[in-house]
């Protein structure tokens, strides 16, 4: 089932590659945001099923609060993708987990499919081992 996905990433090349991978899978990328303002505006203007959120953005390490807000206020499924997964070691309320960058398209495919499954009530596949899931109770 195609999904509407928001990419929050300040490295243009990484964002572009991610967009291609997601579009190959048949998903629609509703936008790419490099900072928190743009990300939150996009989430207000349009329906988003899933957001892939980097933590260090052009306006600082704002990814954590973006992820939390998207998950709790906009009911968006949120996966963090960061070179520094320790930043969210204790989990972030409402979000699913974190992928350590760099990653590759197979891992992204599996993680996205798992996250959309979670959002729709039942994951259709196992989470890829590279995806660290947050303990929802703990977060």
């Amino acid at each position: 089932m195609p999904a509407r996905i928001l990419i929050v990433e300040d490295e243009a090349l990484v964002a572009m590659e991610l967009r291609f991978v997601l579009e190959d899978l048949g998903h629609e990328v509703v936008g790419t945001a490099a900072d928190s303002q743009t990300a939150l505006n996009l989430a207000k203007e349009t329906d988003v099923d899933l957001a892939l959120v980097d933590i260090h953005l052009s306006d600082g390490p704002t990814g954590v609060s973006i992820g939390r807000e998207l998950a709790t206020d906009h009911k968006v499924a949120v996966l963090f993708m960061t070179a520094n997964p320790g930043m969210v070691r204790d989990g972030v309320a409402g979000t699913i987990g974190v992928l350590s960058k760099p990653t590759d398209e197979h891992i992204v495919q599996n993680a996205v499919s798992y996250a959309l499954g979670v959002k729709n009530g039942a994951p259709t596949n196992m989470a890829p081992p590279q995806l660290q899931l947050f303990n929802q109770a703990g977060a």
Binding site: E11, L13, V14, M16, E17, A83, N84, K101, P102
Partner: peptide, 13 residues
């Protein structure tokens, strides 16, 4: 670490 991610993306692109 971020450069690794960019290089990796560049290779894929």
């Amino acid at each position: 670490k971020n450069i690794f991610a960019v290089v990796s993306a560049l290779v894929a692109l």
